[in-house]
Design a protein around this nucleic acid. Sequence first.
RNA 1: GGGCGAUUAGCUCAGUUGGUUAGAGCGCCACGUUGACAUCGUGGAGGUCAGUGGUUCAAGUCCACUAUCGCCCACCA
Length: 943
Amino acid sequence: MPGSETKVVPRVVNPLVLGKTAGFLIDRGYCMPTHDMSVAPPARPAEMDRAYEPQQVEQPLYDWWERAGFFAPRDDAPNPPFVISIPPPNVTGELHLGHAMFVTLEDLMIRWRRMQGYRALWLPGTDHAGIATQSQVEKLLRSEGTSREQVGREEFLRRTWEWKAKYGGEITCQLRRLGASCDWSRERFTLDEGLSRAVHTAFKRLYDNGLIYRGAYLVNWSPSLSTAVSDLEVEYETRNVSIWYVRYPIITADWDGPAADWGSGNWAAGATEWITVATTRPETILGDTAVAVAPDDERFAHLVGKYAVLPALGRRIPIITDEYVDKEFGSGAVKITPAHDKNDYEVGKRHDLPMINIMNKDATINAEGGPYAGQDRFDCRKAILADLETEGMLVQTAPHTMSVGISQRGGEVIEPLLSEQWFVRVKPMAEMALAAVQEGRTCIIPERFEKVYFHWLENIEDWCISRQLWWGHRIPVWHMPDGSMVAPHPDEPLPADGVQDPDVLDTWFSSGLWPFSTLGWPEDTPDLRTFYPTSVMETGYDILFFWVARMMMMGCYLTGVEPFHTIYLHGLVRDEHGRKMSKSYGNVVNPLEVMDRQGADALRFTLATSGTPGQDLNLNPQRIEAARNFANKIWNITRFVIGKLDDWRENRTAIPAAVALTLSDRWILSRYHRLLADVGRLMEGYNFGEAGRHVHDFLWSEFADWYVEIAKVQLEGDAERQANTRAILFTVLEGALRLLHPFMPFLTEAAWQYLNPASNATDGAHHTIMLAAYPTADDDHDAAEAEAAFDLLRELIVSIRNVRNEYKVEAARWVAATVVGGPHTAMFQEQAALISRLARVDDAKLDIIATLDEKPRHVAALVIGEIEAFLPLAGMIDLDVERARLAKELETAESDVSRRAARLANANFVDKAPEHVVQREREALESARAALERLRERLAALE
RNA sequence: GGGCGAUUAGCUCAGUUGGUUAGAGCGCCACGUUGACAUCGUGGAGGUCAGUGGUUCAAGUCCACUAUCGCCCACCA
C-alpha cells in the first residue's frame, strides 16, 4: 500500500437496505483528509418541536457528520492518538444487542476522547466469517438446486463475493444508525487485498520460524460442516446418556477365536475368559486396538499380555496396562480407540498401537467397520448394540451423565477424528501475551478477567488453523511433485509446478491480526506508525479467548508490541429476567425496532447506564422508556432555556463573580462543577454507567426540578439578575449537553444546534458539539456553604409542600406562613421570593423572623433542626392529625438523638474517627436536639 | 474437579477508596392542564442490604464460612 495516502475501498450501496437506512449511505469513495466546517448542518424547524422526535433528527445529523468528515482523526489534534479497532462484525451479521452494546461503549469512548482533543480514530470493518458466510451461500445454491461441489471452487467463490457485495454493507449501515462515529474512509474487510497480504505475511513468518506445522492428529470434526474446528469451537453440554458394559472374549488355550458368523448368536461360543469394558460410544468398538487396565489392578493381572477378540471384526487386540486407567470407574478396563478419542490417542501413542480410522468425513462408517460400513455413526451404534445383545456380549446398560462436545457452528455432536491438519505452536506467543499483562503493559478491565486470561494462556494447546472450507484465506503453501512443501513470500512468484493446499485458515487467524493489519501492516505506513499500538480493545468477555488472547499473541509476536494498552470487557445482554435471548424463546429484542420506536439515544443511554463493567446486563424495556423520557426532558429544558434567552446569545454576558450572584446561582454552579469533576473521574476510571447516571440525576433532579423553576423567578428580577440567570442557564445546559454527548449523540447535537445557531458563528464555520471541548471542573465555583444553605432552603420548601399535601390544600391556593429561622433568618429573608413561589406561600403573608416568643396555636407546624415554620391553615387543622404527625416526627428525632449521643459518648469514636466525621456528628446531634425540643414544644402547645 | 460472578424496595438495577437517616427508574397511593415538558409536575408509602461469625470507634462496602442462582475452564471410558 502506498505510504502517504489511505486506500479507500468504495462502499457498496446495497439496494435492498435502502429505505430505512438509505440516508446513511454515503458513497463518496474518497477520504476526507480533514474536517470540513463549511458543510452546513441539516435544516431544522425555526421552533423546536414540542417533543423530541428522534426519527426526524438522527439520520440527517449522521449524514452531516459523516459528510463533513468529523469522524476522521484530525492531524492538528493537541493530544496523542486514541485508537479503537472495532470488533469486526460478520459480513453476514444482522444488528443485535451485542453489536449495540459495543457500539455504545466504543463510540462513547471515542467521542469523549475526541472532544478532549485526542486524535481519535475508531477504525471500522467487517469479518469474512468463513463458516457463517459459506453456509449462507450454500443455502442459496441449494435453493437453486445445486451445491458448492457441483459448481466448483472458483464459481463458488465468485458467487460468495457477489453475495458479499450485495449484503455485506447492511451491517455497517446498521452500525451507523446507532451513531457510530467510525472513520469509514478507513473501513476494512478481512479478505480485502491489504489484509490478505497481512495474513500471508504472518503465516509465512510463523511458518519460517517453525511455529506452523502440518500433521495427522486427532481433531474436532464437525460432520455437517465437513471441516475440522478448533478446541474453542466445541461447546460442552451435559447430557444424560447410557453407558454400556460390553465383554470381549479372551484368546486362551481352550479357545482360539470365533468359529461362527457374527450375528449368529454363537460367535463367541466356547470362550471361557472375558474382559468387560464400558463405553458410551459402542460404534467406536470397531476402531479398538487394545484394552487397557490399571498397572496395579490385581483383578486383571492374569489377563495382561493376552489378547481379546473384537466383536464383529474378530481382530485380536492386546490387553495392556496404562496409568491412565482409573480402577474405580466403569468395569476397570478401558477399550482403547486411538483414532476416535483424545485420551485413547495418547495411550495409543505411548504403546505404539495401530490407529484405525473407522469413519468417513460425514461420520458414516468406512470400510474398516466391516459389516457396518456405510451406516451413519448413530445407526451403527444401534445396530452394534443389537448384535452384541444377540451374541450375549452386552453385559449391562446403565444411565450416565457426561458432557458431550457440540459444534458451535454446526450444532451436532463433534466427532474426534484423525486427520491431516495445520497447527500453530502457540506456546512462544502465549508466553509473550502473558508477560504483557503480567508486566502491566496491557491491563484488563475488570481486573478479575486477568486470572481467566492467565489460566487459559498457561494451559494453552496448539491451535488447529486449517478448515476444509473454501471461503477464507487459502493456506499459502504449495505441495510440490516431490512431496515437499513451499511457502513463498507474498512478493515471490508462485511455484509453477506446485499445487496450493486446499484448506483455508480459521477466521480467527485473520482476526488475530486485526489491530495492525487494518493499519497497513506489514508495510510501514503512516497510519501504522501513528495509530499503533491501539489504545483500548473493547469487546464482550465471551470472546476473550477466541479473539482478544489471539490478538495479544499475534500482536506481541509479529509486531513486537502489545496491540493495545487496555482491554475493556463488557457483559452479555440478557432479557429483563436474566434469560439468554434466543429466537426459540421469543425474547429477542431487536435494536433496530427499539431505535425506530424510541431512538438510538434511548437505546444507547440504557445500555450504557443499566449495568456495571463486565457484568451481564438484564435489559429492561422500561429503562429504555425512561431513557426516551429523559431525552424528551432534555429537549424541553432546552426549549425552555432558548425561549428565555431572548437576545442574550447575540450579546453574551459573562457570569460575574460570586458576590453578584444569588444563592441559587452559586448553588447550581457549585453542583455543576462538582458534576464535571465526578464525571471526569468516573470516565477516566471506565465507570461510564455511573458517569451517565450522574449527568442524568443532575439534569433532572437539580437543574430542571430546581434551577429552572428558580430561574423563572429570577427572570422577573432586574436586568442584571436576568442577565446572570440567562448566562447560567446557558452555561450549565450547554456544558451538560457536551457532557452527555458521548452517551446521547443525536439528541445533544440537535439541542446544541438550537442553542448555538450557525448563523451566530463569527468565523463562517458550522460548529458541531462533536468537536466541542469536553467540559472540565473549575474549583473557583466550589461553594460548599452555598450548597448547605440551599439544602436548607430546599428542605423548608419541600416540608411546606408536604404539609400542604397532607392537609389537602388545593395546589393553586396561596397560603400564609411564618418561618422562624434562628441563625438562618437572613438567608431565608433573602430567599423569600423563592419560598413564596416554590411553596406557594402568599408573599404578603410570609413572615420570616428570627425568634417567636408566643407560639401560635391551631396551626400546622414543621420543624427542620433549629428551624420552625407555621402554617395557619384556617379551619383545616385537625388536632388529632397534627398530634399524630408530630408524634411520628418526635419518635424519629428521639432515636436520632439517642443514636448520635451514644456515638459521641464513645471515647473510641471521638479518639479514632477522623476529625471531620466527629465534627459532623456533633453538628448533627445539635441539630437533632434542637428539632426534638421544638417538636416537644409543639406537642405541648396542642394539649 | 477447579475458578469466577450474583444475592440491596413489588420488578430491573446503582452504591467510587469502610463514615450522617442505603439511592434511582418502573410500579403503587394521594393531588395536579400555574406558559419547557402529561414522554410531565408535587407529596408519600415501601428495604433487619441472602444467612452466620469475625475485623473495626464505625460494615451494604473488608475477611471467613454457609445457602441459592448463573457462568467459565477441565481428557474421566
